[in-house]
Amino acid sequence: MARRFASFPHAAKVCGVHQATIRNRVVAGELAAFKLPGKKGHFVDLDEATALFAQRQQWGSFGEKAVVHDLSNVVEDFEVLA
Protein backbone atom coordinates (compact mmCIF):
# COMPACT_ATOMS: atom_id res chain seq x y z
CA MET A 1 0.00 0.00 0.00
CA ALA A 2 1.29 3.46 -0.86
CA ARG A 3 2.20 5.81 1.95
CA ARG A 4 -0.34 8.56 2.58
CA PHE A 5 1.07 11.99 3.34
CA ALA A 6 -0.96 14.87 4.74
CA SER A 7 -0.32 18.53 5.45
CA PHE A 8 -0.18 19.51 9.11
CA PRO A 9 -3.70 21.05 9.03
CA HIS A 10 -5.20 18.00 7.31
CA ALA A 11 -3.43 15.55 9.63
CA ALA A 12 -4.59 17.56 12.64
CA LYS A 13 -8.21 17.42 11.46
CA VAL A 14 -8.05 13.66 10.88
CA CYS A 15 -6.38 13.05 14.27
CA GLY A 16 -8.67 15.40 16.20
CA VAL A 17 -5.88 17.68 17.43
CA HIS A 18 -4.69 21.21 16.71
CA GLN A 19 -2.13 21.64 13.93
CA ALA A 20 0.27 23.09 16.52
CA THR A 21 0.14 19.69 18.23
CA ILE A 22 1.30 18.05 15.00
CA ARG A 23 4.17 20.53 14.80
CA ASN A 24 5.06 20.02 18.47
CA ARG A 25 5.26 16.24 17.97
CA VAL A 26 7.57 16.78 14.98
CA VAL A 27 9.77 19.13 17.04
CA ALA A 28 9.84 16.57 19.88
CA GLY A 29 10.96 13.85 17.46
CA GLU A 30 7.82 11.76 18.00
CA LEU A 31 6.60 12.23 14.42
CA ALA A 32 8.65 12.62 11.23
CA ALA A 33 8.07 15.48 8.79
CA PHE A 34 8.66 15.15 5.06
CA LYS A 35 9.37 17.54 2.19
CA LEU A 36 7.73 16.20 -0.97
CA PRO A 37 8.79 16.90 -4.56
CA GLY A 38 6.64 19.54 -6.23
CA LYS A 39 4.84 20.44 -2.99
CA LYS A 40 5.27 23.41 -0.68
CA GLY A 41 5.40 22.95 3.08
CA HIS A 42 5.93 19.94 5.27
CA PHE A 43 3.90 16.76 5.45
CA VAL A 44 3.50 13.83 7.84
CA ASP A 45 2.77 10.19 7.17
CA LEU A 46 -0.95 10.03 7.96
CA ASP A 47 -0.82 6.43 9.20
CA GLU A 48 2.02 7.27 11.62
CA ALA A 49 0.16 10.34 12.88
CA THR A 50 -3.11 8.50 13.46
CA ALA A 51 -1.28 5.69 15.27
CA LEU A 52 0.52 8.20 17.51
CA PHE A 53 -2.65 10.02 18.49
CA ALA A 54 -4.72 6.84 18.88
CA GLN A 55 -2.20 5.79 21.54
CA ARG A 56 -2.43 9.25 23.13
CA GLN A 57 -6.23 9.05 23.32
CA GLN A 58 -5.99 5.67 25.00
CA TRP A 59 -4.02 7.11 27.93
CA GLY A 60 -4.91 10.77 27.69
CA SER A 61 -2.20 13.39 27.89
CA PHE A 62 -0.86 12.02 31.21
CA GLY A 63 0.88 8.84 30.02
CA GLU A 64 0.19 5.14 30.26
CA LYS A 65 0.64 4.88 34.07
CA ALA A 66 -1.92 7.57 34.85
CA VAL A 67 -5.22 6.71 36.51
CA VAL A 68 -7.98 8.81 34.96
CA HIS A 69 -11.62 8.39 35.99
CA ASP A 70 -14.14 9.37 33.34
CA LEU A 71 -16.97 11.25 35.01
CA SER A 72 -18.41 12.65 31.79
CA ASN A 73 -21.54 10.50 32.15
CA VAL A 74 -22.19 11.32 35.80
CA VAL A 75 -25.72 12.57 36.40
CA GLU A 76 -25.19 13.59 40.03
CA ASP A 77 -24.41 17.14 41.01
CA PHE A 78 -20.79 18.01 41.59
CA GLU A 79 -18.69 21.13 41.98
CA VAL A 80 -15.55 21.98 40.04
CA LEU A 81 -13.11 24.41 41.61
CA ALA A 82 -10.84 26.18 39.13
Rank of each mutant, 00 (worst) to 15 (best):
A2T: 09
R4V: 14
F5C: 06
F5L: 10
A6G: 05
A6D: 09
A6K: 07
A6R: 05
A6N: 07
F8Q: 07
F8R: 02
F8I: 03
P9Q: 05
H10F: 15
A11Y: 08
K13F: 08
K13W: 07
K13V: 04
C15A: 12
G16R: 02
V17Y: 05
H18W: 10
H18K: 14
Q19W: 10
T21G: 04
I22Y: 00
N24R: 13
R25K: 14
V26Q: 04
V26F: 03
A28C: 07
A28S: 11
G29T: 00
G29N: 04
L31V: 02
A32D: 13
A33F: 01
F34W: 13
L36V: 02
P37C: 06
P37N: 10
K39M: 08
K39T: 02
K40E: 04
K40L: 05
G41A: 08
F43R: 05
V44G: 08
D45G: 01
D45P: 01
D45K: 02
D45H: 03
D45Y: 02
D45W: 03
D47V: 07
D47E: 13
D47K: 10
E48V: 02
A49P: 04
A49M: 00
A49D: 01
A49E: 00
A51Q: 15
L52K: 03
L52A: 05
F53S: 01
A54N: 13
A54K: 14
A54G: 12
Q57M: 12
W59K: 06
S61Q: 14
F62N: 12
F62H: 14
E64L: 12
E64P: 12
K65D: 15
K65R: 15
V67H: 12
V68P: 03
V68I: 14
V68H: 06
H69Q: 13
D70C: 01
L71Q: 14
S72L: 11
N73M: 09
N73D: 13
V75M: 11
D77R: 12
F78T: 02
E79Q: 09
E79K: 07
L81I: 04
L81R: 09
